[in-house]
């Protein structure tokens, strides 16, 4: 029965797409599709806001599980040797779920689809070192910032001393994650850049020599480049801005406030500091 319903709805959707004449070639279409559905959902979500703004916490508790949308992103969310999700965000999410009396489920998602996943209720929150950009703030109900971050330029270590200020970056080619805060910085500073799928791919571009430099999160840079990492020959130099991480819920959700309260409690009893220490992000905590 479910399959049948899904089929019928799929047909309806395809038809409406065809009617709009917005059918283009495959890869491009799928992205447009994601974006337009997200936009449509935003509209419907805000229309329904009064109805479910009170109920998100209740919805989670009734369902008994908090589904957390993540990507594999050390040190925030990553797998230990047993395949268990750990990290600063993962550990906090487990504690938060426990405080609500529900279990936690981590789901790896395509970062491009995070708003779609959230509005489609296939996940309940995005808790993955998410930079609080204007776009994120407008599409999600976000917590207060809990961690500081910056966008930094990553270059080869042997030429790093030539690129210590903004002006010197102008003639480099950059790799940035498509739709990321890094891309926003590249645009703002008029830098010459190529979009790639994710931050790690941006690093690979630099390592492979296909781009001169990358712009990524400082927290990630700290974990992934330099001595003792996979990218020993890379280093990071200029910080382009400073920004903050937050957790995103569905627009109008009461869970954001609940999590803010929970963060405050953890700050007071030292849990937050302790977990931050475990993952070496204590310096970045928002005081």
């Amino acid at each position: 029965m479910k399959k049948l319903i899904a089929l019928i709805m799929a047909m309806a959707m395809v038809l409406s797409l065809a009617a709009c004449g917005s059918n283009s070639s495959a890869p491009a279409a799928s992205k447009d599709e994601a974006a337009s559905s997200a936009a449509a959902a935003e509209g419907s979500a805000s229309a329904q806001a009064p109805a479910d703004s009170d109920s998100d916490l209740a919805y989670i508790q009734e369902k008994g599980v908090l589904t957390v949308g993540i990507t594999d992103f050390e040190p925030m969310d990553y797998k230990d040797e047993n395949g268990e999700w750990i990290g600063f965000d993962a550990d906090m999410a487990k504690l938060f779920a426990e405080s609500l009396g529900v279990s936690v489920e981590f789901v790896e998602i395509d970062w491009d689809n995070k708003i779609l996943e959230l509005d489609g209720k296939s996940i309940d929150c995005v808790w993955n070192g998410m930079t609080l950009t204007d776009e994120v703030l407008s599409a999600m109900e976000c917590t207060e910032a809990y961690l500081n971050n910056a966008q930094v330029a990553v270059v080869n270590a042997d030429v790093a001393d030539q690129y210590q200020d903004m002006d010197s970056l102008a003639d480099l080619t950059f790799a940035v994650e498509s739709g990321s805060a890094g891309q926003a910085q590249a645009v703002e500073n008029g830098l010459n850049y190529t979009e790639v799928q994710n931050q790690a791919a941006a690093l690979m571009e630099v390592a492979a020599g296909t781009s001169d430099a990358a712009i990524i999160d400082s927290l990630m840079a700290a974990a992934m480049v330099g001595e003792g990492t996979s990218y020993e020959n890379l280093t990071y130099t200029v910080g382009l801005n400073s920004e903050e991480y937050g957790v995103g819920f569905r627009k109008g959700s009461d869970l954001a406030e609940a999590l803010d309260d929970f963060f405050d409690t953890c700050k007071e009893d030292g849990t937050l500091e302790q977990i931050a220490n475990t993952y070496k992000v204590q310096a970045a905590l928002v005081k």
């Binding site: 899904a6 089929l7 709805m9 799928s30 559905s37 449509a40 959902a41 419907s44 996943e117 489609g120």
Partner: peptide, 10 residues
């Protein structure tokens, strides 16, 4: 994409 996201979104 439609089959997975459509029911939840719409």
């Amino acid at each position: 994409l439609i089959i997975y996201y459509f029911p939840g979104l719409v």
